[in-house]
Design a protein around this nucleic acid. Structure first.
Length: 809
DNA sequence: AGCACGCCGACT
DNA sequence: GTCGGCGTGCTC
């Protein structure tokens, strides 16, 4: 007797456990298989994942149900992957099934619905028609109009739930309706059809020109695809069908992949520069010692080539590699580099793919056809069997942390996966996150640091100039372009060079700033800027709840020039065109990039020099290599600085450094102009000097003083709901509950409850609580206990929890 | 979550 | 009695 331990695909707290099912005779079930099981009183057929096998159980055998079968498309989770999933459940406070779904391509869900059929012969129809409740008649009428068949969803769209349930139940009881459950695993595999000749000699009428043509083609190219016949020879379906029925040709189906790989010229290995070579050697040395590596290489230092050669080395050992990059659709150059080096053994997993395409790529990996996966966050789960290396490029990017459940951090998952599977991890960035740099310099988590401080071919770092916008205002310049920036723009335009202008318009949270002296209101307890609330006209700190009235004049210089900020890219575009006329400008932001591929189009246009100027938000600041850009202007570099976030300095440094890194990558030296209202801020000063280490030293000192990460771990609880009163009440209740759970453990701080910085989203009010402790496990434990005692999750409010969030807005 | 059961008031 | 509205409790 074999018993399977199964996680069922039913997303709820109560069913987040392992169930036991009997394995019927003749069904070969292995760990990691996806199966279909009957579940619940109604024996609804749902998907389940086998996580273990046993030969006995404490449960009563005759009360166990049996596995119903296997879905048509096989999904496997390796034993290592199951370990990772279990770890994710603990670490990110999610359900097993959520972790499983996170690790599998979307759209593999088993579709499950009920189909109702009208029993036409039933005499009961007549019975019913004699003086019956309206509901029954309505449902019957609908069924008849619908051809005697309807899915549950179709009925639901047309009837009120309660009426429906009762009426349908009644009709089933009377035998008028029949219900079948339909279980369908999405058939994601696409088949392509190929034509072969299938007769010694085909006799074709003289006038059938198309048929003759087809026979000729198939004769010279047996195995040509139907697609090619239609496209290249204009042979239609009728011709093929005709010959098929005569038996002159036959058709074979083969699994096909939707993505036709771009034909890219093979590129051979580049010779590493001296510096790259040293770094490569150091990395290999660390890997040999079983260490993970943080590679800190300045912008333009040639990290990608090192990645390529590290992967090559793993492939030579018969192993496989994963490369994570942020929002991959933004870096077509990088994909091209990988494909040109590794050909069709590269699987690309990016957000621009359809679900079917994603599934195809996933399958190519699972089947061993792809050896290198390059993709965004979720590519960390690429189903390789012999994983040798995981590379995370631009590791400081926030996109590696998922904002939806499971709220995992791909960097942490990568490290765990490497540890489970004996692979090596390489994090790479020109501006490493403080957390990673801290780990690497202190050799925590077995992480080592390798640095490259020079650009390839010793290209000089761009010259960076900080412009004090307060001075500009004093001098009467109300334009968004400072004199310096305007001058540099004119020079660049005169030399036919290209220009990039950055604007960080993350304009949700307004902040109060004095335009004449740069004063920004800050919280006395938290070293974080206060947020302006128009309603009630007050300033508040969203971490500790401190609040004060909005000052009428600047407390520092008594000026009445108190303003809150918000310049959009469109305004920059308009102002640019009115200041420097007759110049082609490209704008790239959320408004212009809604269409699929539109990023690529805009960037290609810019690369082809169809415009001299590119204006955009941060999305253009990553990894692009435009060799004719000599000037980068950062219109407002203060945006982050004034967000209520202890990472404000870090994000500013990263943004400025990365943006500046776009300048001077070609033969000409680059210039960068940073416009700011806080020119003395350490983030900007260190960024100006390209001094990451200096920045890190200051930043880590602040983190230590304030006991912020990496010196502590945060737990974030957001309580939201439509009704403000219910949310506030629940938040206060949650506060009491957390205090009780904390007991007298003084290592754990609890902040709040206080309104979330984004106090209302989608019509929902939001309040938050923050837990802080030096020990992550302590935070997790309280969050878990809190979740188990959840009196809170009701129709009125919902609770979301996150461990070590990257933003708490 | 999703489903069925069963209790209870309203109405034939 | 019977209908259907709604709360309750369970899922190998």
């Amino acid at each position: 007797m074999k018993i399977a331990q199964i996680i069922v695909d039913n997303k709820c707290k109560e069913t987040d456990r392992v169930y036991s099912y009997l394995i019927p005779q003749g069904l070969e079930i292995k760990i990691g298989h996806r199966v279909i099981v009957p579940f619940g009183r109604a024996n609804k057929k749902i998907a389940g994942y086998v996580v273990g096998l046993k030969s006995n159980t404490e449960l009563e055998i005759n009360k166990l149900k049996a596995i119903a079968g296997l879905p048509s498309n096989d999904i496997f989770l390796s034993a290592d992957m199951l370990k990772l999933i279990k770890w994710m459940r603990e670490k990110y406070l999610c359900y097993y099934i959520e972790a499983i779904h996170g690790a599998l391509p979307a759209n593999i869900r088993i579709k499950n619905t009920y189909i109702y059929e009208l029993n036409q012969d039933s005499k009961n129809i007549d019975l019913l028609k004699e003086g019956n409740p309206q509901a029954l008649m309505d449902v019957l009428e609908f069924m008849e109009e619908n051809g005697g068949r309807a899915t549950k969803e179709e009925l639901r769209d047309n009837f009120n739930d309660n009426i429906l349930e009762n009426a349908v139940k009644k009709l089933i009881k009377l035998g008028v309706l029949k219900r079948h459950q339909k279980v369908k695993s999405q058939e994601n595999i696409m088949y392509e059809r190929f034509v072969y000749p299938d007769a010694e000699k085909a006799e074709i009428p003289a006038n059938a020109k198309k048929q003759r043509l087809l026979m000729d083609i198939v004769g010279s190219k047996p195995g040509i695809s139907i697609k090619a016949l239609q496209k290249d020879y204009a042979i239609g379906k009728a011709t093929i069908d005709n010959l098929l029925s005569k038996g002159f040709i036959r058709i074979e189906e083969k699994e096909a992949y939707r993505l036709v790989p771009e034909k890219i010229q093979a590129e051979s290995k580049k010779i590493l520069t001296k510096e790259q070579c040293r770094a490569f050697g150091e990395i290999e040395e660390c890997f040999k010692k079983g260490r993970h590596v943080l590679l800190h290489g300045v912008t333009g230092s040639g990290k990608t080539e090192i990645y390529l050669q590290l992967i090559e080395a793993e492939l030579k050992k018969g192993k496989q590699g994963i490369v994570l990059v942020p929002e991959i659709s933004l870096t077509p150059q990088m994909i091209r580099r990988f494909v040109s080096r590794f050909g069709d053994t590269v699987a690309v997993l990016h957000s621009g793919l359809s679900n079917g395409e994603k599934y195809d790529e996933w399958r190519r990996i699972a089947e061993g056809k792809a050896k290198v996966a390059i993709g965004a966050r979720s590519a960390i789960f690429a189903p390789f069997e012999k994983l040798g290396i995981i590379i995370i490029d631009e590791e400081h990017e926030n996109t590696y942390k998922s904002e939806t459940r499971p709220k995992y951090d791909a960097r942490e998952v990568a490290m765990k996966r490497c540890d489970i599977e004996g692979a090596r991890l390489l994090l790479g960035s020109a501006t490493p996150s403080i957390e990673s740099y801290f780990k690497a310099t202190n050799k925590l988590n077995n992480m080592a640091l390798v640095s490259i401080n020079t650009r390839v071919n010793n290209k000089v770092m761009p010259n960076v100039k900080i412009v004090d916008m307060r001075e500009e205002l004093k001098a009467g310049n109300k334009s968004i372009f400072s004199h310096s920036l305007a001058e540099e723009i004119k020079i660049a335009l005169g030399q036919k060079d290209q220009i990039i202008l950055f604007l960080n318009r993350r304009g949700y949270s307004t902040f109060v700033s004095c335009r004449s002296c740069g004063f920004v209101a800050k919280c006395p307890n938290c070293n974080i800027s206060l947020t302006y609330h128009a309603k009630g006209n007050y300033l508040t700190c969203h971490y500790c709840g401190y609040s004060r009235p909005n000052p009428k004049e600047c407390p520092s210089c008594k000026s009445s020039y108190i303003k809150y900020f918000g310049i959009g890219t469109q305004r920059v575009e308009r102002e640019f065109q009115s200041t420097f006329d007759d110049i082609d400008v490209l704008r790239m932001d959320a408004d212009t990039t809604t269409r699929k591929n539109s990023h690529k189009l805009i960037l290609d246009k810019f690369r082809n020099k169809e415009a001299s100027v590119l204006i955009g938000t941060q999305m253009i600041g990553k990894g692009h290599d435009f060799s004719d850009v000599t000037l980068v202007g950062i219109i407002t570099s203060d945006t982050y600085l004034n967000l209520p976030d202890f990472r404000a300095g870090e994000k500013t440094f990263q943004m400025v450094t990365q943006s500046a890194g776009r300048a001077g990558r070609g033969d000409k030296p680059g210039t960068v102009i940073i416009q700011t209202y806080s020119p003395e801020h350490y983030s900007l000063l260190y960024a100006k000097n390209h001094d990451y280490e200096g920045f890190y030293k200051d930043e880590i000192k602040m983190r230590k003083e304030m006991n912020y990460p990496p010196f502590s771990h945060l737990g974030h609880i957001v309580i939201s709901g439509i009704g403000e009163d219910a949310v506030v009440k629940a938040a206060k209740e949650a506060g009491r509950s957390l205090n009780k759970l904390r007991g007298d453990n003084s290592n754990i701080e609890i902040w709040g409850p206080s309104p979330a910085p984004l106090s209302r989203i989608n019509n929902r009010h939001r309040w938050q609580l923050v837990l802080k402790s030096v020990k992550e496990e302590e935070v997790l434990k309280i969050l878990r206990d809190f979740n188990n005692s959840a009196f809170l999750n009701s129709e009125e409010v919902s609770v979301s929890m996150d461990i070590n969030p990257l933003n708490m807005l």
